[in-house]
Design a protein around this nucleic acid. Sequence first.
DNA 1: CGACAATTTGATCTGTCTCAACTATGGTGG
DNA 2: CCACCATAGTTGAGACAGATCAAATTGTCG
Lengths: 246, 246
Amino acid sequence: MSRISVEHAKLIRQLETIAPLDDDDRSALAALPLRLKVFGADQDIVREGERATEACVILDGFVCRYKMTAGGRRQIVSFHFPGDLPDLQSLALEVMDHSLAALTQTRVAFVAHDAIVRAVEAHSGVAAALTKHALIDGSIFREWIANVGQRPALARIAHVICECFVRMRALGLAADTSFELPLTQAEIGDATGLSNVHVNRTMQELRRQGLIAIHGKTHSILDWDQLQETADFRPSYLHLRPEFIS
Amino acid sequence: MSRISVEHAKLIRQLETIAPLDDDDRSALAALPLRLKVFGADQDIVREGERATEACVILDGFVCRYKMTAGGRRQIVSFHFPGDLPDLQSLALEVMDHSLAALTQTRVAFVAHDAIVRAVEAHSGVAAALTKHALIDGSIFREWIANVGQRPALARIAHVICECFVRMRALGLAADTSFELPLTQAEIGDATGLSNVHVNRTMQELRRQGLIAIHGKTHSILDWDQLQETADFRPSYLHLRPEFIS
DNA sequence: CGACAATTTGATCTGTCTCAACTATGGTGG
DNA sequence: CCACCATAGTTGAGACAGATCAAATTGTCG
């Protein structure tokens, strides 16, 4: 098997958390030409309304997808970590129905749609993994609708924390009980449909209950069982392969 | 071209609202074996946690997907009309992360996953259409997150009405300004994250403003421009082919 | 016509928002 | 290395959108 770059390795690692790949699939992915680019915090990577000819892979940093609503309110619809393919849908839906933005300084790799299509056509494992990736994307959205639509503030915020923790742990980006979550309270508010003030008070409550602790960007899970309980969090909707749930 | 059953025609019609199909694609779809079944109102068609080996096509009736949340609250995550493929994701995500239920008496056709996979492998047009269908599913979820997360009750409910109207019109299920929307106010509440009482008062306000009129299940759009305006509705997220937006 | 489901109305309560100020924190340049 | 500034977090007070509970009314369909 040919040598695999650090960049390609992150993409492959991500796909392997949801679907098995054989050596052939991996080398096909490792051969994808990447166009690297760095974005500063709060910069848009792709904007709603644009027509995309490339999809991107997050290499470093923290990214979100969002939609603007009348009255200038922002709804964040997903968070993304290194390895994620946050705009795979652009393969078939040319014009973006939402924007993609860097939350921290972010290194991104753009991959031409053509190249992805060729890899998909020649390697059924790649096709299966990308299909699954796109469908899990949808599954996570369903859970977010339920989160924002039905859960009280405490559960809503706890749920976002649980999801980030489990997904980052699957990618090897989180230790046993602590991880770096560089989100501001305002951003958590935009993801949960709550005001930053209320996010603040609610997170104080999570700390008061001894569920989490926060020092800077480092979030520690103090009581994982109880946190999942108050979050109403069950990770099945992430459709991770069992060995990556831990 | 071979004769096409009414049932297959609905599926084909639906896919043609989002992607072009050639005669070959159409006959491949028309050849899919269907297992017909009728469900009564409020019956589950597939339940969360189940393992699916078939996907289904709605032939008649009104269907929703939903998730239950702690405290026994229900969040409806999508509505589906005749022609829709509401659980296409089960092709790659074997275990259901949500339930599928009939809202009215509903006739459904089950199609074996195998049969779909064979059609997809042999016909690139079918593959493209189903891929697009799955990705649009995701796009609609994103819009719902924003709807439930950021919009006030009046816009939230108006938005659901706009979406149903446009999607049903694309399928030929709505006249110019009126259509059958057999949803109870409680169901609209479960879709928008509002109580049935508040849905009631808010829909009275929509009528008072002269935006819609309701007689039984028949909903009439009295001022389409203004309704879209108050709903903050822009149909681009549905990714319909232009000739089906009208 | 009777019965059950759906809608409507009234009254009260509460979670969350808004506005506004104040306090940490971290990064930058002098 | 410190002073400064911007950004993020925290606190308080008041307002309000929407929830809840309960009852009455209106369909609707066998």
